[in-house]
């Protein structure tokens, strides 16, 4: 008779503990929606900034921009080409 009573008591206590735990966790995460909202907003802002920075970078790195800046700096097209050639080494017998 004692064993079923102990088992029932244990189950009863377990139920109470789990119920309390559930209430505690639910309370804790109930207000995380605010944080989640803020994080989502920040992600959106950072994504937008990413796109804007990428756009600025691409515009600056384009050949059109580089060539215009090079002209302003005084760079000129190469007109004379020089090639340094080396006589190929050949195997020789001694």
């Amino acid at each position: 008779m004692k064993r079923p009573v102990h088992l029932l008591l244990f189950l009863f206590i377990l139920i109470i503990v789990l119920a309390v735990l559930k209430i505690a966790i639910t309370n804790t995460i109930a207000t995380t929606g605010i944080t989640l909202g803020q994080m989502q907003k920040q992600i959106s802002v950072l994504n937008t900034q990413n796109y804007i920075i990428a756009q600025k970078y691409l515009a600056a790195a384009s050949l059109v921009t580089i060539s215009q800046k090079a002209q302003k700096l005084g760079f000129q097209s190469n007109t004379n080409d020089y090639f340094v050639t080396q006589v190929e080494q050949t195997a020789t017998t001694q």
Partner: peptide, 11 residues
């Protein structure tokens, strides 16, 4: 999913 204030629900 969001609550009555429009805030997203984590669950």
């Amino acid at each position: 999913i969001h609550d009555a204030f429009g805030r997203p629900i984590l669950a």
